[in-house]
Computed example of a mutant assay.
Amino acid sequence: MDRSPEPMPEAATDDHVFAGWAAAGAGAMLVKLRDSGLSGQDLKDAGDLASHRFLMRLIGQYRPDDVVLSEEGKDDRRRLSARRVWIIDPLDGTREFAEPPRDDWAVHVALWEDGDLVAGAVAQPGLGTTFTTADPVAPARTGPSERPRLAVSRTRPPRFVAALAEDLGAELVPMGSAGAKVISVVRGITDAYVHAGGQYEWDSAAPVVVARAAGLHTSRVDGAALRYNQPDVLLPDLLVCRPDLAEPIIRLVRNYR
C-alpha cells in the first residue's frame, strides 16, 4: 500500500516539486488506508506510521544527503549542524483523519535550508488538492466591510480568542489540523489563523512556507519571527493572516497576554 510512486522528472532536482509530489503521494496512500476498514485508534496509529515510513523512504531515496525531523521519528540531532533539513508531519489532524468524511487533515512536507524555510507542501487529500510553493495560490481577499473569519482549533482554541473575535468583529471558524487551518487562509475561506497553547515545528513549517509563498503574513502571535530547526522544537503559537490584519491582531493579542 505504501510502495514508492514513480518519480516526477522535476522532483529529482526541484525541491518545490519534490515536496508537493511527496506530500500528495503520502496523502493518496492515506486515503486508501482510510478506506481499508480500520477505525478509531487502530486507524490513527496505522496512518501515522504508514505515512512516516512512506515519506522517510522517499526522502532517503531522492534526497539521501538531507536530514529529517519528523513528528513520528526520533530526533536526529545531526540536523542542528546540517544545511538542509526536511521537517515533516506525516499526518496532521489524526483525530479528523479517523472521523470520515472529515476533510480537515493534512500531510506536511517542508524544507529548511541555511537558516530558513525555503520550500514545502501541504496535501489535503480530503479536498483532492496539494498546496505547494511550486505553484503559490493567491488568496481571495474579503472586502473591508466584510466580517473577518478566524480559523481556530476545534478542541483547544486560545483562551483569548473570544475577546479577539469580539474586538475585531470577527466570526470564529473551528476546524482540525493546523495545516487545514493555515490553508483555509491561503484559500480565502478564512482571513486569519490564530493559535496559542502548544505546537511543534512540524505542525507549522510546511503550512507557513506555503502561506508565505502566497503572500500572507506569518509570525508568532506577538509578531516575533518564526524560527525552525531549533534545539527545542516546541513552537507554541502562530499567526497566519492577510497582511492588513497582522498589525491589529498582534496589537490586540499583546493586550490580552
Rank of each mutant, 00 (worst) to 15 (best):
L216Y: 11
I59W: 10
A205G: 04
F160Y: 15
G126H: 08
P5V: 00
R254F: 02
F131M: 00
A206K: 02
F160G: 15
T190F: 03
L38M: 10
Q230W: 06
R156H: 15
E146F: 04
P101M: 06
A162M: 10
L172R: 07
H217Y: 09
A151T: 08
S81H: 13
A12C: 07
V68Q: 05
R78V: 00
A196T: 12
G169E: 11
H195P: 09
L235C: 02
E171M: 04
G215Q: 10
N229W: 03
T190Q: 02
A205F: 03
D135S: 10
R156Y: 15
L150A: 07
A151D: 05
D191I: 03
I183M: 12
R57Y: 05
G40C: 10
E166C: 02
D203S: 05
A12I: 01
H16D: 15
T129R: 14
V240W: 03
M8Y: 01
D191Y: 08
D114M: 11
R147A: 07
R53T: 08
R220M: 04
C241L: 01
V185Q: 13
P207M: 11
G223N: 08
T129I: 05
K44W: 09
W112Y: 08
V208T: 13
L38Y: 02
C241I: 01
L252T: 03
A165G: 07
L80M: 06
S70W: 03
A106L: 00
R102N: 15
A163W: 12
V118K: 12
L55P: 09
R83S: 14
R63W: 14
V253P: 04
D92T: 13
R141V: 04
V186E: 04
A138R: 13
E96H: 01
S204A: 06
R159I: 15
A225P: 07
P7H: 03
R257T: 10
D114A: 15
V194T: 13
R156N: 15
V221P: 09
M56H: 15
V240S: 06
E166G: 09
K32D: 15
Y200S: 14
A192I: 06
P144V: 01
R53P: 11
R84T: 11
G128T: 12
N229K: 09
A46D: 13
V240R: 01
R242W: 06
A178W: 05
K181R: 15
A192Q: 11
T142E: 06
A121F: 00
A178N: 12
R57G: 10
L49Q: 09
R63T: 08
E113S: 04
R63F: 07
A11K: 02
P243S: 09
V67T: 13
D237E: 10
L216A: 12
A192W: 08
Q230G: 02
S36G: 10
R254P: 13
Q124S: 01
T132K: 00
P174C: 10
R254Y: 03
A22H: 13
R187D: 11
V68W: 07
T142S: 09
D135M: 01
A140F: 03
S51K: 07
A11T: 03
A121E: 00
E99V: 03
T13V: 04
G60L: 01
